[in-house]
């Protein structure tokens, strides 16, 4: 009986969908939440600014 319970709980743990695993992982969310705006807003923006030719 106990073995069956364990099997069931293991199956339940395995059945957690990928999206839920992502939403349950605060550090992965932190990584994404810092990485996205850093790449698309800050780094891309800085690259465009530093590529402006200097006045001669």
């Amino acid at each position: 009986m106990q073995k069956n319970d364990n099997q069931e709980s293991t199956q339940e743990e395995e059945a957690v969908p990928g999206m839920q695993q992502l939403l349950d992982n605060p550090f992965m969310l932190l990584f994404l939440g810092v990485m996205f705006p850093t790449v698309f807003y800050i780094l891309w923006g800085i690259m465009e600014i530093i590529s402006i030719p200097a006045v001669k």
Partner: peptide
Amino acid sequence: FLLYILFLQLASAHHILADPGVS
């Protein structure tokens, strides 16, 4: 909320919309 985490901060760019220098 996940969409907030990924995209909300990018809206900062609307303050730069009238600035030259960024494409």
